[in-house]
């Protein structure tokens, strides 16, 4: 289920991960750490300015059935990646 930008903008995440200033592999590691802590159905949102993380994090959680990717909000080189733990 991919949400629209408007839906994502009003979504209240259960866990917020600060990935601003981080690069790979830290961007992925902190997302995985937060998903490990989260309970099933909870929403984890990572804020990052590392562009490739918008591809690597969704691919990693999808491939390993760790979380559902709700969507990515992009604005001027900053991104919010929304994940729902499975």
């Amino acid at each position: 289920m991919t949400l629209s930008n408007e839906e994502l903008a009003i979504l209240k995440p259960d866990h917020i991960v600060d990935g601003i200033g981080e690069v790979c592999p830290h961007t992925l590691n902190i997302a995985l750490k937060a998903l490990k802590k989260a309970k099933t159905g909870e929403i984890v949102m990572e804020e990052t300015d590392h562009s490739i993380a918008t591809k690597t994090i969704p691919a990693a959680v999808k491939m390993n059935k760790i979380a559902e990717v709700l969507g990515v909000l992009s604005q001027s080189g900053e991104y919010k990646i929304f994940l729902k733990k499975l």
């Binding site: 790979c24 490739i52 690597t56 691919a59 990693a60 390993n64």
Partner: peptide, 19 residues
Amino acid sequence: ADFCFTASIRDWISVRDSR
């Protein structure tokens, strides 16, 4: 393409992402 050669191997062995 955000063409990162490091990720091509690291993400494959770590999270099976082969893109």
